[in-house]
Structure formats: C-alpha cells, structure tokens
C-alpha cells in the first residue's frame, strides 16, 4: 500500500504553500487541519499490516488534528475577532519563495541521510524536513498569536511525518503521550491568547515587547 504515500505527501507539501501564502486565518486553519487528517490516513498506509493499535493511533490523531484543534483555534479566532494576518515580518510572496527554497534543500539533504532500504524511494524525509521548515517560517514571520500557534502545529506535523519511519519502534503509550501533550499545549496557548486579547485588546505579538534589556 506504500504507493499511496508519495501522492499524499505531495498534497501535504502543497498545503505547506497554502499556509505560507494565505492571509485569511480561516484558510490556514483549514489547510493545517487537512494536513493533520492526511497524515493520520497515511499512518495506515505506511504499514504492511493494519492492527487495532494502529487504527487507534490513526483515529486519535485524525480526531485531534483534524477536528478538535482546528475547532479550538476557530473558536479562539472568533473570540478575539481576528480574521486575517495583515502585515507579516516577511511578505507572503517572499515567504512562499523561502518555503520553495527550503523544500528544495530538504530534498537534497534527505538524500544524504542513511535511510533504511524500504524508505529510500519515498518522499517521507524530505517532506518531513520541508514541513518543519514551513512551520518555522510561519512561527517566525507572523505577528498574530494564533498564526504562531498554527506554525507550531505545522512544525509538529513535520515531526510526525518523520515519526512514521519509526512507527514500529515507538510504543503506543509514547505516541499517545505526544498527542496528549500536543492537545494540552494548544489548549494552554489558547487560554493565554484569550488573556492576551483581554489584557491588550489585540493579539498582535508585537505589543508583547515590554520585557527587554534596558539600554
């Protein structure tokens, strides 16, 4: 079933560019949610045999990344009435370009890693690195607190793709723990965003600049 993996990964990579180029937060949330669902589905294909444990994990990650977290973020978005990312540090075109360069480099670097024979032909490693890079770009260049949380989610998705290589090595408990941490993490960030918007009546993280070294 591994011949399904590469097409899915190509869609995941395209979604990276959607998150880099879109200014509407709703679009970005949808793209990240779709990515999460695709990755969950891919988990089933990455394996020779489908076990109950695998289904449980895939189901949990699809529900969490495809439904629960996007709902929470949409709720936070409505709560603080923010719809778009207006002026990121690096413009949309420039960040698309950077994303493309990063994806290219990821493909080059992915070839240098000593991979197991059955993973060599797949796009898993380049896709993982490219997605993590996209996550970093979004985290570093966007101003709105919600965008930064989305960047963190994209970064997690990238790491998740790499984790698919190791599905047999990672115990069930640990995978579940990672998902739980992700959920609690986004939950806590959501609460803090709520407090930020109440305190400053804005969720631009540029206003968070009171703490610095005095000259």
């Amino acid at each position: 079933m591994t011949h399904w993996i590469d097409p899915i990964l190509v869609v995941v990579l395209l979604l990276n560019f959607v998150t880099l180029g879109a200014s509407h937060l709703r679009t970005v949330i949808r793209a990240v949610a779709t990515q999460g669902v695709l990755l969950g589905v891919m988990m089933l294909f990455a394996h020779s045999s489908i076990t109950l444990r695998l289904c449980g994990l895939a189901g949990a990650s699809i529900i969490l990344k495809g439904i629960v977290l996007p709902r929470m973020l949409s709720y936070a978005m409505r709560e603080v009435s923010i719809r778009r990312e207006i002026e990121p540090h690096i413009g949309f075109i420039a960040s698309l370009l950077l994303g493309a360069i990063g994806t290219g480099l990821a493909v080059v670097f992915g070839r240098t890693l000593p991979l197991a024979q059955e993973h060599l032909a797949l796009l898993l490693v380049p896709a993982s690195l490219a997605t993590a890079w996209t996550g970093f770009l979004v985290l570093a260049t966007r101003l709105k607190a919600i965008s930064q949380v989305l960047g963190y989610l994209i970064l997690e998705n990238g790491i998740f793709i790499f984790g698919l290589l190791l599905l047999e090595a990672m115990p069930f408990l640990v995978e579940m723990g990672v998902l739980l941490d992700l959920f609690v993490g986004i939950f806590v960030m959501g609460i803090i965003i709520h407090h930020i918007s109440r305190e400053f009546s804005s969720v631009n993280t540029q206003i968070l600049s009171a703490l610095k070294e005095e000259p």
Partner: peptide, 29 residues
C-alpha cells in the same frame, strides 16, 4: 502574560526540536 507567552512558545518549539532529535537518534543518525 508576555513572559508566559514567550516561555510557552520558545519552550514548545525547543522541545519539538528535541523530539525531532529523538527520532533522528532512533534512526541512528
């Protein structure tokens, strides 16, 4: 509030890199 936001974001990204590293290690790189 500002301190908490920075702590959460920097800490989470850092720890995400550590997870990446753990995966690399399991892949013996």
């Amino acid at each position: 509030l500002e301190a908490t936001w920075k702590y959460l974001l920097v800490g989470s990204v850092g720890i995400a890199l550590a997870l990446f590293g753990s995966f690399f290690l399991a892949y013996s790189s």
